[in-house]
Amino acid sequence: MSRWFAPGTWWYALPLLLLAGPLLWLDPSLGAGAALAGIAVLVFHRNPDRDVPESGYVSPADGKVSVIREEDGRLRVGVFMNVHNVHVNRAPTAGPIEDVTHTPGAHKPAFSKDSDRNERVHVDFPDYRVTLIAGAFARRIHPYVETGDTVDRGERIGHISFGSRVDVLFPPEIERDELLVERGERVRAGQSVFVEP
């Protein structure tokens, strides 16, 4: 994995940057546009290091808390990633991964209720689940982990190219009044604590 960018970034950025050179000779405005688009792709897929707290469930994504709801007696918290957010996602706690499954679906805006039927990847831990959800422009979810892997708290587990939302479905014993964030609050992956032990 690149230290600076999410895996696969160059597949998106390099064609634009290579195209920019010839286009600058033919049409400077098109060449500049291609170069800017390539740079924007690199910025979008940036992959910064984070100082991870030693305890608690940390946010799996950068962005704004957009979902807080109860589902069958369990708490779900979702983070919507805007275009300016880092899109590399992280494990809320340390532990083994029991299953990683891909579910095809729609590509509705990730901040809408219709996004509950969007394409997604579920990363299942023994007692909770992280779900990476594609959005209107996200066409590719890239998990970095597989069934049987063990991760540390805040470790990178995947990214979504050009999207969208990441949810945590907490263990049944976690209650709403234990949640340390509110809807609309901005959070950082691997740093913002959702629930303390």
Rank of each mutant, 00 (worst) to 15 (best):
A34Y: 08
A34R: 03
A34I: 00
A35N: 02
L36V: 08
F44G: 10
H45G: 10
D49Y: 00
D51G: 05
D51Q: 13
P53F: 04
E54I: 01
G56M: 13
G56C: 12
Y57L: 09
P60Y: 15
P60G: 10
A61Q: 11
I68R: 13
R69F: 07
D72P: 01
G73F: 08
R74Q: 14
V77Y: 09
V79A: 06
H84R: 14
N89Y: 04
T93V: 13
A94E: 10
I97F: 00
V100K: 01
V100Y: 04
T101K: 03
T103E: 05
T103A: 03
T103W: 02
P104R: 07
P104W: 05
H107I: 01
P109V: 12
S112A: 11
S112K: 14
S115L: 00
D116R: 15
R117W: 01
E119I: 01
E119G: 00
H122W: 04
D124W: 05
Y128I: 11
Y128T: 02
R129S: 14
V130I: 11
V130S: 01
T131Q: 06
T131W: 06
L132A: 10
I133E: 15
I141V: 12
P143Q: 06
Y144C: 07
Y144V: 02
E146F: 01
T147E: 14
